[in-house]
């Protein structure tokens, strides 16, 4: 009984739910820390910007509201004064000129009347000689009429003269204006010509500069080409020298390899003729032999095997110290003659 009870005994988890809630609380705290922590770093620049904007709008908005009413007020008084002012001078100006001609006309007739009256008096004297009062009266009336006519004619003549003078003045003015215009035109034409000349001069200068530039560029190119040719020649010479050195080195080491191999060959005695054997040898860097293949047999197996043994014996093969040259020695063709 006891044992079974103990085995089934449930381990009561105390406050499992509260533990879960506390865990959730901790995470909420952490998230809040992250959110506000990161927001804090982000806010200061925004806050600065917002402060600047909140301060500025007030002064801007107030003037914006004020101007719309004020401008209309200002324009209204402004236009009204000009209207009364401008019409007033216009009528006043025309008025003064008119009286002037009127004034000018009366004085002229007055002296004419004075001039005319003396001749009238002379006939009066003549009339006194003839004692006819009626005739004299008629004559006087006729004379008065004639004087009046003369006066009218003179007035007309004077008006015509004035008109002519005015016309002449106008013509003169027009002529002067025309002359001025012509002078202005001539001046403009001269200015244009001068401008064109200046432009042409500038063009010529530019052309000269371009020519000079082209010439200098050509000289530079020629010099560069010469320098390049010289450099190429030097390079070619150097390369040729290097190649010569390389080829010398390669042929020297090939000869050394062949000599070493030949020194190790134990020649089989008494072979007929001069058999030739060819081997293809693959080398490793350092002179070790990776592979030896018989590429052309001499026909005598004894000789072939003797040469192959000699090749194997002569490792490491002498190689140039420059590792760049090893590619020339990677695959060697070794030809050995029985009799030299």
């Amino acid at each position: 009984m006891n044992v079974s009870v103990q085995r089934n005994h449930p381990h009561e988890e105390p406050k499992s739910l509260t533990a879960g809630m506390l865990a959730g609380l901790v995470h909420l705290l952490f998230v809040a820390l992250l959110v506000f922590g990161l927001h804090w770093k982000d806010h200061p620049p925004e806050g600065m910007v917002v402060d600047i904007w909140t301060e500025l709008p007030k002064p801007i908005q107030e003037p914006v509201k004020a101007p719309p009413p004020s401008p209309p007020k200002q324009p209204e008084p402004q236009p009204t004064p000009p209207k009364p002012e401008s019409p007033k001078p216009e009528p006043t100006k025309p008025e003064p000129p008119k009286p002037e001609p009127v004034k000018a006309e009366p004085p002229k007739p007055l002296p004419q009347k004075a001039a005319v009256t003396p001749p009238v008096k002379k006939p009066d004297i003549a009339m006194k000689q003839k004692p006819d009062p009626e005739e004299q009266k008629k004559k006087e009336q006729e004379k008065i009429k004639e004087q009046e006519r003369l006066k009218e004619i003179e007035k007309q003549k004077e008006l015509e003269k004035k008109k002519e003078q005015e016309k002449q003045k106008e013509l003169e003015k027009q002529k002067e204006l025309a002359k001025q215009k012509e002078l202005e035109k001539q001046k403009e034409i001269e200015k244009q010509r001068e401008l064109e000349k200046q432009k042409e001069l500038a063009r010529q200068k530019e052309l000269q500069l371009q020519k000079e530039r082209e010439q200098t560029a050509q000289r530079q190119r020629e010099q560069e080409v010469k320098a390049q040719r010289e450099a190429e020649a030097q390079r070619a010479a150097q390369q040729a020298a290097a190649r010569n050195q390389v080829t010398n080195e390669i042929s020297k080491y090939k000869a050394l390899i062949l000599a070493k191999i030949k020194s190790r060959i134990v020649m089989p005695p008494d072979l007929p003729g001069n058999p030739v054997v060819e081997f293809n040898v693959t080398l490793l860097p350092g002179g070790d032999i990776l592979d030896v293949r018989l590429s052309k047999s001499s026909g005598h197996a004894v000789f072939d095997s003797a040469v192959e043994r000699a090749i194997h014996l002569s490792k490491p093969l002498p190689l140039p110290p420059d590792p760049a040259l090893f590619n020339e020695f990677r695959n060697l063709n070794i030809t050995v003659h029985y009799r030299e």
């Binding site: 988890e13 105390p14 533990a19 879960g20 506390l22 865990a23 901790v26 995470h27």
Partner: peptide, 14 residues
């Protein structure tokens, strides 16, 4: 993290 904290509190109480 949630489960770890849950177990932390549970084990704390236990």
């Amino acid at each position: 993290s949630f489960f770890s904290w849950w177990y932390i509190f549970r084990k704390l109480f236990v």
